[in-house]
Design a protein around this nucleic acid. Structure first.
Length: 979
RNA sequence: GCUCGAGUGGUGGAAUUGGUAGACACGUUGGACUUAAAAUCCAAUGGACAUUAGUCCGUAUGGGUUCAAGUCCCAUCUCGAGUACCA
């Protein structure tokens, strides 16, 4: 009987689908276990071999947990809103929904072929109105909430209104906009409705705010920092300007401390936690106000804007301040600059505006800045402090201004050196002639009036105390985390459930959701620069009928315009893991029963690129949902594993530029390497003839050589290129002249790069499934290396796991059919089996799937040479293999006479008694170098071991008459003789 | 610049608490079977020297700790990922 994988795999995939083998129920006697993958964006390129890596790992874990008796939920869906479908729509006019549906279908077919144990009955798509109904619903909940710092949680906005009515906002301890005016309860009551709404918007967890964006007028869109290169748009090279826009924001900053604290509770990779910690960026210090000395602008005490507020982590160094630096964008800059300095400052501001934040960051060597001519007053010494502007200070962080202490901060130090600003030393016994001194723990303050002789901690406390007395500062904790902009000027995203009355946003009542995306003629922004939804003709809200109606009916009395922005990509992915628990519920986002049963994700697998995006926003929404009592856990995933990226091997040929009417010229990789020709007279002659024929200069021709990508599918395992296929592939190759190796082969050269369609190095899993089977692919992807490490894809090795499966099959069957018998397993059989059980369970616990594949190989090699036919051993082996190679396992299981699917068969129990050894082969080392091995009984004492080793002839040979100084014996491990 | 991670044969990688470096595969070479090929099986495979026995070198580099270091410590180099110069 042959191992016919195509037949077997198709058969069991059909069986699983028909029997709903992996459907998880929302209640069970079994313990629950929730295994989640980051759902894919269904791109037009289809699935490549990098995608399934994490899915295979999570599938192994899910299947293993089923064998261990858990009620496992392993859902899958699609993050189906996104830019590529929209851009395709812009180019072709095809509706993104159609593109998306086609791509989803393709993904599903590809996923099905790999044999995942997904519960497809729970599938969600973020672009499905039935799904985004609940994304809109959460938005409304956020709008109707504020953050109470006293209770440290989000509460319904009605509790805030109650306080306003009772006592105004003076006593409120809430997270809000910074510039909220104080009002009394009487004033609140006297506000008209619009004013009240304006005030409330300053407290809501999602709010409208003026945000600076990178606006590209030519493209009519907002660009990310990423999309800007050298101050112009990456696409098309159009100018980009900073522009203020009113956009929705999420008050994630309210959760900064809880997002930090929560990291301690979850088992996530440390590097990922570190990057979230850095992103949130908590720092403790003080805010200090410096009075601006500028007679022309009046007296600072009468004009509050003449204070410069800074945040510093080192208030203890306040006497070391020798200048101040403002971000060039700081509001005060133009106000305080003296007429003499005006030209300098303006030139510097202009120069800075042209540099992106990325540029400013990458360039640490160039020190630049300008003096404003203005001075601030030191809060204690009252000495004047020059005020500079410099691009190392960023407007977006803190107050956009720093007090510069050159002796304690290297950047300030470099700046001071560069501009010849004094560098006073305020540290006891420290030399600062070469560099700044930033070691807080070793700090003892000097030359600092009342702080002299104090260490960092005490000096900091005292400095804050004294600043508070002056009314010019206070202790403060600062976070880098900024509120998240939630508006996008795109078509293919969730519409907001928002309409505007008199310029104020109004929520549509949840019972009228979803608000479906309107149809538009064009997916581009409108000519007036409005988002694509501005093109919609039916996009107004009628408050009488509670439905979307044509724009022509807008009368601003009962029919109003709807929001034109859409939500960002992360909106749909921030609660999808909870929606899977009850995906078809039309009345609630999920039922109480479902969320209380499933609680949270037990294992989440996905890429680390989402560290500060999706994984932070999702934690934020989960905490919000927790505060409002919708979910029982304030962290959504207990454990997270990052799978590494699979890189592709790109193939290149060397191309020389030829004039028109001359065939294109390509060189084999070993004829031409790096920058030069390998000595090879034959080719020189051939090239000579070629050049003579077309009247070309050989030197000129070869100086133009560059390497260009070709599709990896034209290259075999020996790097040999299929020239005929290449000629058919693209026009430039069809008539080309190829300079091959002496043996006539055309060789490609390779480089490892990220797998991408544009690099022609994408390897598609379909062909591998066809040629070797899904089980071979699954094993091979795991066998490549540690899950979390990035690794290159190379199909060459797949024959290894494929022939393993054939060997496994031959353990059960030969040409005459089944080999298994009811024979008692031998001692060796049991030893091999239990050794394997132990190792595989350890490996799964450590997510070390690569080593369990080798363990299976060793097991099958051993059982084969033991000629094992014992049915009981072979049955256990089938279960062990089943999470990794489920199709073959099902087939073997059924051939062994089992009627049910193997998927819930109990995992074999490990029995240590089969591994007890009676003897051990000791490595005998001399001075740490292993010289020979000696088999000794396991129960020998140290003395007995020493006696046996010393009596051995090879020991005498090694010692050559010397007496050992010392003999180290670790029973059961090693013997080391020193001497 | 900062943060995190990683450097082991021709290749992917193994060595989980310091204890036999290179498991398991790929590739390569040789052999068996075959008219031939595929498939399968067997053997060899870190480097150098040595007929054999064996010896020496070897986990990016240089030091150190230890009876013993891929593993621990210090310094350096290289590569990768992230990044918002975060005061």
């Amino acid at each position: 009987m042959q191992y016919n994988f195509n037949e077997i795999e198709a058969k069991w995939q059909k069986y699983w689908a028909e029997n709903q083998t992996f459907k998880a129920e929302n209640n069970s006697d079994k313990e629950k276990f929730y295994v989640l993958d980051m759902f894919p964006y269904p791109s037009g390129a289809g699935l490549h071999v990098g995608h399934p890596l994490g899915y295979i790992a999570s599938d192994i874990y899910a299947r293993y947990k089923r064998h261990k008796g858990f009620n496992v939920m392993h859902p899958q869906g699609y993050d189906s809103f996104g830019l590529p479908a929209e851009q395709y729509a812009i180019q072709t006019g095809q509706h993104p929904a159609i593109t998306t549906a086609t791509n989803v279908k393709r993904y599903r077919e590809q996923l099905d072929k790999i044999g995942f144990s997904f519960d497809w009955s729970r599938e969600v798509r973020t672009s499905d109105p039935k799904y985004y109904k609940w994304t809109q619903w959460i938005f409304i909940q956020l709008f109707n909430s504020w953050y109470n710092k006293n209770t440290d949680k989000a509460e319904d906005i009605s509790t805030l209104i109650a306080v306003f009515e009772k006592e105004g906002n003076a006593t409120i301890n809430a997270v809000s906009d910074e510039d909220v005016a104080i009002f009394s309860s009487e004033e609140w009551k006297s506000f008209d409705s619009k004013k009240q709404q304006e005030v409330l918007l300053q407290y809501r967890l999602t709010y409208l705010a003026e945000t600076e964006v990178n606006w590209c007028p030519a493209l009519g869109t907002v660009l990310a920092n990423d999309e800007i290169v050298n101050g112009v748009s990456e696409r098309g090279g159009h100018p980009v300007v900073r522009k203020k826009m009113t956009q929705w924001s999420m008050r994630i900053s309210a959760y900064a401390q809880r997002l930090l604290d929560g990291l301690d509770k979850i088992d996530w990779p440390q590097p990922l936690k570190d990057s979230q910690t850095n992103w949130i960026g908590r720092s403790q210090g003080a805010s200090v106000k410096f009075r601006v000395q500028n007679s022309e602008l009046g007296v600072a005490s009468e004009n509050p804007s003449l204070f410069i507020e800074v945040f510093t982590t080192r208030p203890d160094t306040i006497f070391g301040v020798s200048f101040m630096t403002l971000a060039p964008e700081h509001d005060l800059v133009l106000q305080i600059t003296t007429p003499e300095q005006k030209a300098d400052v303006e030139a510097y501001i202009e120069a800075t505006a042209k540099r992106s934040e990325r540029d400013r960051m990458a360039d640490v060597k160039t020190i630049s800045g300008a003096f404003t001519g203005a001075y601030a007053e030191h809060p204690f010494s009252k000495e004047p402090i020059p005020i500079w502007i410099g691009d190392y200070v960023l407007a977006g962080y803190g107050t956009g201004a720093v007090m510069s202490v050159p002796c304690g901060d290297q950047r300030d130090y470099d700046f001071a050196k560069h501009f010849n600003i004094p560098i006073p030393n305020i540290f006891e016994g420290v030399d600062i002639s070469e560099e700044a001194f930033a070691d807080k723990d070793k700090t003892v303050i000097a030359n600092s009036d009342f702080l002299n002789g104090l260490k960092y901690k005490k000096a900091m406390k005292l400095a804050i105390y004294e600043l508070e007395k002056l009314g010019q500062g206070q202790g403060k904790i600062n976070y880098r985390l900024r509120d998240a902009v939630f508006s996008r000027q795109r078509y293919w995203g969730e519409p907001f459930p928002v309409y505007y009355v008199d310029g104020m946003p109004q929520m549509i009542a949840p019972e009228h959701l979803p608000i479906a995306l309107p149809e538009v003629e064009k997916y581009l922004p409108t000519e007036t620069g409005e988002p694509p939804l501005g093109n919609a003709e039916v996009w107004a809200w009628c408050t009488k009928e509670n439905k979307v109606v044509p724009n022509s009916e807008i009368n601003n009395t009962c029919t109003f315009p709807l929001e034109l922005n859409t939500m960002p990509g992360w909106a749909g992915s921030s609660q999808y893991f909870n929606r899977y628990m009850d995906p078809h519920n039309e009345n609630e986002i999920f039922s109480k029963e479902a969320i209380n049963y499933w609680q949270d994700v037990d294992l989440y697998i996905g890429g680390s690129e989402h560290a500060t995006g999706h994984l932070l926003y999702s934690r934020f929404w989960q905490k919000f949902m927790f505060d409002r009592g919708f979910v029982p856990k304030d962290e959504f995933a207990k454990k997270l594993i990052n799978q590494g990226m699979i890189t592709g091997t790109s193939a290149f040929v060397y191309e020389a530029l030829t004039p028109e009417n001359v065939p294109n010229v390509y060189f084999s990789a070993e004829v031409f390497t790096q920058d030069d020709f390998v000595e090879s007279p034959e080719h020189w002659t051939e090239l000579e003839e070629f050049c003579n024929k077309y009247g070309l200069n050989k030197k000129e021709l070869t100086s133009t050589i560059r390497s260009i990508h070709i599709d990896v599918s034209f290259v075999d395992n020996q790097s040999s290129i299929d020239i005929d296929a290449l000629r058919k592939w693209r026009e430039e190759f069809s008539e080309a002249k190829f300079f091959c190796e002496n043996d006539g082969k055309m060789l490609a050269h390779h480089e490892v790069e990220k797998m991408s369609k544009s690099k022609y190095n994408v390897v598609n899993p379909d062909e591998i499934c066809e040629e070797y089977g899904a089980d071979s692919l699954r094993l091979y992807e795991m066998f490549l290396g540690p899950l979390e490490q990035s690794k290159p894809w190379n199909t060459a090795g797949i024959t290894g796991t494929h022939s393993f499966l054939k060997k496994l099959w031959r353990l059960y069957f030969d040409d005459n059919g089944a080999k298994f018998t009811n024979a008692e397993p031998t001692k060796d059989n049991l030893k091999t089996l239990h050794k394997t059980i132990k190792k595989v369970e350890e490996d799964i616990a450590n997510f070390s799937f690569n080593t369990s594949v080798s363990t299976f190989m060793i097991c099958v090699n051993e059982l084969s040479s033991q000629k094992c036919t014992s049915k009981s051993v072979l049955e256990s082996l089938a279960i062990l293999v089943s999470p990794y190679a489920p199709h073959i396992a099902e087939e073997l299981w059924s051939q062994l006479g089992n009627a049910e699917s193997i998927s819930t068969a109990p995992f074999p129990a490990f029995d240590a008694s089969h591994l007890v050894e009676s003897s051990k082969e000791y490595p005998i080392s001399f001075n740490g170098k292993m010289r020979f091995k000696l088999e000794l009984p396991m129960d020998f004492s140290k003395d007995q071991i020493e006696e046996a080793v010393m009596a051995h002839e090879k020991t005498a040979q090694q010692l050559q008459g010397r007496t050992p100084k010392k003999v180290i014996i670790v029973p059961g491990k090693i013997v080391n003789i020193v001497g």
